[in-house]
Amino acid sequence: MRMASVAHRLTLLPAGGDAIDVARLSDHRFSSDPQAVYERWGEFRDWAADVGAATDGAAEAVVAPESLGSPAPSPRQVFAIGLNYTDHAQEAGLGLPEAPPTFTKFPTCITGPYGELPLPSGAVDWEVELVVVIGRRAHRVKEEKAWEYVAGLTVGQDFSEREVQLAGPAPQFSLGKSFPAFGPIGPWLVTPDEFDDPDDLELSCTVNGERVQKARTSSMIFPVPELIARLSAVCPLLPGDLIFTGTPSGVGGARNPRKFLAPGDVVVSRVEGIGEIRQHCTG
Score class of each variant (00 low, 15 high):
15 A>R: 15
16 G>M: 10
16 G>C: 10
17 G>S: 06
17 G>P: 07
17 G>H: 08
17 G>K: 09
18 D>I: 15
18 D>F: 12
19 A>W: 07
19 A>D: 02
19 A>K: 04
20 I>F: 10
21 D>P: 05
21 D>K: 04
22 V>R: 03
22 V>D: 01
22 V>N: 08
24 R>T: 14
24 R>L: 13
25 L>K: 11
25 L>Q: 12
25 L>H: 06
26 S>W: 02
27 D>Q: 10
28 H>S: 12
28 H>A: 09
29 R>D: 12
30 F>S: 02
30 F>M: 02
32 S>Y: 08
33 D>M: 02
33 D>E: 08
33 D>H: 02
35 Q>S: 01
36 A>Q: 04
36 A>P: 05
36 A>D: 13
38 Y>V: 10
38 Y>P: 05
39 E>T: 14
39 E>F: 14
39 E>N: 15
41 W>I: 00
41 W>P: 06
41 W>F: 05
43 E>D: 14
44 F>D: 09
45 R>H: 14
45 R>K: 13
45 R>F: 11
46 D>G: 03
47 W>I: 09
48 A>Y: 06
48 A>S: 03
48 A>C: 00
48 A>L: 01
50 D>K: 12
51 V>N: 02
54 A>H: 07
54 A>C: 07
54 A>M: 15
55 T>G: 09
57 G>D: 05
59 A>C: 03
60 E>P: 06
60 E>Y: 04
60 E>K: 09
60 E>W: 04
62 V>L: 12
62 V>Y: 09
62 V>G: 01
